[in-house]
Write a protein that binds this DNA or RNA. Structure first.
Lengths: 153, 153
DNA sequence: TTTAGTCCTTCCAATGATGGGAAGGTCAAG
DNA sequence: CTTGACCTTCCCATCATTGGAAGGACTAAA
């Protein structure tokens, strides 16, 4: 199977498959004489595992850990659970942050007439020097909206 | 006021102030003879406006729109409201995505003993070829966890 | 057999918002 | 006149991903 077919079958783009190989998340594949990468069903299985992990928001680093645990028949399930729960807590923190932003904005928007007049509490609040110092404080480690997983069709 | 003091006073790092200037979000400042940037209280006010917008998760592009509306005394409040509500809907979509991830993971973790034995439903599910095709599908435009606003102290 | 079209290869660049750091100039206090 | 804190510009790294260019390989049809 060529990389395009493996991409199709796994839902991981060819670009990303090469990238995952380059960073060592997946091993280097066998090549044809012409240099084409060749994939087995087993490789596709691994790629799907990776894709599903991505879909759940795990970082590449975490996925590397999960893959290695997955392939280790002696693994302790607590090691897997720890990664999952750690990630859940990160997700939940992120959710709370976004919820705070959304609710603040909705509140402001509610008080804004939304007509052709210039008066706008949203801008007034953003411009208000009195607030915002000890306010929400986005998490230091993770941003608000990041760039994109975006699976292939 | 030098850039460091403006950073302190606004909560926007000096690095970011220079960056915002370079991309045209804020105008080029007056410089001293030695080339130091000089900021007024008014500039700091604008920077605070920007920081608060960032704290609410607006992109730089949206912030540019907000700043220009803010400075336009003739603006229609509906234009501001539209930006805010559009952003709210993006935030809410993001929140739903993360909630789906978190709840899936929590469910899996609940069924995982988390002991020293190798049996682990989390990995089994990630490896399951039967599911995951029409599953969650992270939004095509925005990623899961991005990099960092991280305000200066 | 040639040719068109689709696939593959590698390499480089961009994304968005931010931090890190180097190399060098400036300024105020001691 | 030195020290140290500040400023300047410039380049690099992050994270996961896409885009594209240049060129080779394969396949099907003319």
């Amino acid at each position: 199977m060529n990389i395009g077919q493996a991409a199709q079958a796994s839902g991981v783009s060819a670009k990303m498959i090469r990238y995952y190989e380059s960073i060592g998340l997946i091993p280097k594949t066998v090549r044809t004489e012409a240099g084409y990468r060749v994939y087995s069903d087993h490789d596709v299985h691994t790629l799907r595992f990776i894709r599903r992990s991505r879909d759940l928001g795990f970082s590449v680093e975490q996925i590397a850990d999960l893959v290695s645990l997955w392939q280790d028949r002696e693994r302790a399930s607590k090691d897997v659970k720890a990664i999952a729960l750690e990630h859940v807590s990160v997700l939940e923190r992120k959710i709370r942050e976004l919820q705070e932003m959304a609710s603040t904005l909705k509140h402001l928007a509610t008080n804004c007439h939304g007509d052709t007049r210039p008066h706008c509490p949203i801008l007034e609040e953003l411009a208000n020097d009195e607030i915002g110092e000890g306010h929400v404080k986005p998490d230091a480690k993770f941003g608000v909206l990041g760039k994109a997983p975006a699976r292939q069709a």
